[in-house]
Write a protein that binds this DNA or RNA. Structure first.
Length: 587
RNA sequence: GCGCCCAUAGCUCAGCAGGAUAGAGCGCAGAAUUCCUAAUUCUGAGGCCACUGGUUCGAAUCCAGUUGGGCGCACCA
C-alpha cells in the first residue's frame, strides 16, 4: 500500500464557500432567510469569464424559490453581507442572479505565499478522507510482452492512482494475473517447444495455436539449463504445470520491466491460480447458492448469429439479471473448471475485503462484461441490506497507432504487434504518458509517432515542459545576478502577475474535481492552460521590458517576480507528478 | 437483432457535479517582429453543441427516442 501524508491546504474556493455560508447564516439570523434550507446546490466557483470577477456564487438563484422570494431580491441582501467581508473588494449582482465577488489583492498574494509554503503539497486534498481505493489496471495476460493495446489503460490507471492518493485516499495499485486459464497452458506448450529447440531439436516453424514470439526463446533456454532433457519426451501431464509456472514467472518479470519503463510500479500482483488454489471461487459459489444467487440452469443461445455447433448445457449460473445484466452468466464450464467470470467474481470479492472502494480500468473491448462483474460485486458486498461497495469500471477506448498519418497494422497472431517497450524507447516515457492523458478516456484517440515527438508549441507535452524549463532557466539567471525568489515584497506584483496566481490557485479544486470524476486527464488540460498563461505573460515582456521577470536595477521587484515564477513552476511540477511526467529543468 | 461508448468551429479536441455572450490549438485572413532561453507574437473571421421531444428559473451538460460512427455479444480472456 502506498500512503501519502494527509497534510492538505484548504482550497481557496472552499474557504470562500465558507464565507458565503456564513453570509447566509447572517441572513437567517436577521430573519431575512428561512432557516434550514438545503444548501447543497450552492456553488463557489471561478466564473467562466474572468472579467466577471474572481468568484461567483449561484446562492441567490438556488435558494430564492424555496425561500419564497426572487433571485435578485435575495441577491441584494446577500451582496450586502458579502461586501462587508474584509477580503471582499466588491460584490455585485449579474445576469439572472449570480453574485460576482472580487477579492482584495492581499487574498491572492497570500495564496501565492501559501503555494511557497505548501510546496509539493500544494493541491493535496483531504477529500478522500483516508479511505482506501483499490485501482486495478493493466492486468494483461502473462503470455508475452506488453504491447500498445495495453498502454492507455496502464497510463490512465497509474495516473488515476496517483491522483486519488493526492486527493486523500489510500491507494492499492493492483495487477490481476490471469495465470489459470487456457492461454497459459498454450504459453506452457510454447515454452516446451522452445525448450526442445534449446536442446538442439529442429522444431521448424512454430505451429498454429502456439505463441510464435522470440521472447520465449530465453525461457526455453533457461528450462533446458535447469532440467536438461528430462521433459523432452515426457507426456504433457508431467511438465505442463511446471512449465506453466516457470513461463508465467518469466513473463511477469518481462512485464514488470516493460511497466517500469513507463514508470509504473504496482503494489500488488494477485494470482488467479493462487486464488483458485485457496478455494475462493468455491467459497463464493457456496455463499451465492445459499443466497439463491447461483442456480443450475441452461445457458441462452448467443444473440444474433447462432453457431452451428450450439447446444444447450446445464451450468451453474449467477443471477446477474437481478442486478441489471441481460442474461445470467455461467461461473463454471461444463468440464467443471471455473470460467473467467467465476474466478473474477471471487477475485473482486477478495479485493472488496481490503478496500473501501474499487476501480477497474479496462479496455473498451471488454465493455460487454461490465454489467456482470458489477452485478457480482453488488451481490457479494450488498447482502442482507448492506450498502454495496462502491465499484466503478472505467473503460478506456481504443488507440489507433499512426505513423505519418498511416495506420500501423497490428496482428498478434502474426507476432508483429507494436510493443510498449519499443514505443517508449522511440518517443520517451513522458511523451507516451502525457499524450495518453490528453484525451478523455472514453473517447477514441490517435497516436501519431511523428506528431507526438514534435518539439514545438503545437505539442502539449513540450509546451507544458517548456514552461517549467523556462521558469528554471529564469531562476538560474536570477541566481547568477545574486537574486533569489522572495515573498518579502509580493505587494509589488501587478494585476497581470496576480492573474497567473488566480489561475494557479484553481489547482486544488481541479485536483478534487478530477479525483471525484476519476478523470486524470483534467490535470493535463489544466497544466496546458497554466502553461499557456505563463507563456503569454512571458511574451508580454517582449514589448514591455518592465514586465519581465528579471528587471535590472530593481532587486525587490525581481525577487517578488522570481517568487511568482517559482510557484507557477511548483504547481506545474505538482500536476506533472500526478501524471508521472518529469518536470524538465531544461529542454 | 441486443448491449456499452462517442457525436461541439474547416481539422484535432476541452467544456470543471445544469449556469452568464460555448473555449483552446492547428488551418485561414490581416498586422507586428532580432525578444530575460532557444518553439515568433498580436488581432480577426469562423457554431442550430448530430436531430426531435421532455425535466426547470436556466440544458452542450440530465431523461426518452431517432440518425451516424467505434467496441462487444458461447463455457474464450
Amino acid at each position: 500500500m502506498t500512503t501519502d501524508s494527509p497534510i492538505a491546504a484548504q482550497s481557496l474556493f472552499a474557504a470562500y464557500a465558507g464565507v458565503i455560508d456564513a453570509a447566509l447564516d447572517a441572513l437567517v439570523a436577521k430573519d431575512a432567510l428561512p432557516a434550514g434550507l438545503a444548501r447543497g446546490a450552492v456553488t463557489c466557483e471561478p466564473p467562466r469569464d474572468a472579467a466577471h470577477g474572481d468568484l461567483a456564487t449561484n446562492a441567490a438563484m438556488v435558494l430564492a424559490k424555496p425561500a419564497g422570494t426572487n433571485p435578485r431580491a435575495l441577491a441584494t441582501l446577500l451582496v450586502e453581507e458579502l461586501a462587508a467581508h474584509p477580503r471582499v473588494a466588491s460584490a455585485e449582482i449579474a445576469g439572472p442572479g449570480f453574485i460576482n465577488l472580487r477579492l482584495v489583492d492581499a487574498a491572492w498574494i497570500d495564496e501565492l505565499a501559501l503555494i511557497g509554503t505548501a510546496g509539493g503539497d500544494y493541491g493535496r486534498s483531504t477529500l478522500g478522507g483516508g479511505t482506501t481505493v483499490n485501482v486495478e489496471y493493466v492486468s494483461a495476460n502473462p503470455t508475452g510482452p506488453m504491447h500498445m493495446g495495453h498502454c492507455r489503460g496502464a497510463v490512465v490507471g497509474d495516473a488515476l492512482a496517483a491522483l486519488l492518493q493526492f486527493a486523500g485516499h489510500k491507494v492499492i495499485k493492483e495487477y490481476y494475473v490471469n495465470d489459470a486459464g487456457a492461454q497459459v497452458d498454450v504459453l506452457a506448450r510454447s515454452a516446451h517447444l522452445r525448450y526442445r529447440e534449446a536442446l538442439g531439436e529442429d522444431v521448424g516453424a512454430v505451429p498454429e495455436g502456439l505463441y510464435p514470439g522470440d521472447y520465449l526463446v530465453p525461457v526455453g533456454q533457461a528450462l533446458a539449463a535447469e532440467y536438461g532433457d528430462r521433459y523432452v519426451a515426457a507426456p504433457e501431464s508431467e511438465w505442463l504445470v511446471l512449465f506453466r509456472q516457470k513461463a508465467v514467472a518469466a513473463m511477469l518479470v518481462m512485464i514488470k520491466e516493460d511497466l517500469a519503463k513507463l514508470g509504473i510500479v504496482h503494489d500488488l500482483f494477485s494470482s488467479e491460480a493462487e486464488l483458485q488454489a485457496a478455494g475462493k471461487p468455491e467459497a463464493a459459489e457456496a455463499w451465492l447458492r445459499a443466497h439463491d444467487l447461483v442456480y443450475d440452469g441452461h445457458l441462452e443461445a448467443p444473440k444474433g448469429k447462432t453457431p452451428e455447433d450450439w447446444e444447450p448445457v446445464e451450468l451453474p449460473l449467477f443471477r446477474s439479471t437481478r442486478f441489471g445484466d441481460d442474461q445470467d452468466r455461467p461461473i463454471k464450464k461444463s468440464d467443471g473448471s471455473w470460467t473467467y467470470f467465476g474466478a473474477d467474481l471471487a477475485y473482486h470479492f477478495q479485493k472488496a475485503e481490503t478496500a473501501d472502494a474499487l476501480v477497474d480500468i479496462w479496455g473498451a473491448d471488454h465493455a460487454g462484461t461490465v454489467k456482470r462483474i458489477k452485478a457480482a460485486v453488488a451481490a457479494l458486498t450488498g447482502a442482507e441490506g448492506a450498502k454495496p461497495k462502491p465499484f466503478e469500471v472505467k473503460l478506456v477506448q481504443m488507440v489507433q497507432l499512426l505513423r505519418d498519418g498511416q495506420p500501423v497494422k497490428m496482428s498478434k497472431r502474426a507476432g508483429n504487434f507494436v510493443t510498449l517497450a519499443d514505443v517508449v524507447e522511440e518517443v520517451g516515457k513522458d511523451v507516451v504518458r502525457f499524450t495518453m492523458l490528453t484525451r478523455k478516456p472514453d473517447a477514441q484517440m490517435d497516436f501519431d509517432f511523428a506528431k507526438v515527438v514534435e518539439a514545438s508549441k503545437d505539442n502539449p507535452v513540450f509546451y507544458v515542459q517548456y514552461a517549467h524549463a523556462r521558469i528554471c532557466s529564469t531562476l538560474r539567471k536570477g541566481a547568477e545576478l545574486g537574486w533569489a525568489p522572495s515573498a518579502a515584497n509580493l505587494a509589488l506584483l501587478g494585476q497581470e502577475e496576480l492573474g497567473l496566481v488566480k489561475l494557479a490557485a484553481q489547482f486544488p479544486r481541479i485536483v478534487e474535481g478530477a479525483a471525484l470524476a476519476r478523470e486524470p486527464h483534467r490535470i493535463a488540460f489544466f497544466l496546458y492552460d497554466l502553461a499557456a498563461a505563463f507563456h503569454a505573460y512571458w511574451n508580454f515582456g517582449n514589448d514591455k521590458p518592465e514586465k519581465r521577470f528579471i528587471v535590472a536595477q530593481d532587486k525587490d521587484l525581481t525577487e517578488a517576480r522570481l517568487f511568482l515564477a517559482a510557484q507557477i513552476g511548483q504547481v506545474v511540477k505538482n500536476g506533472l507528478a500526478i501524471l508521472g511526467v518529469e518536470a524538465a529543468q531544461e529542454l
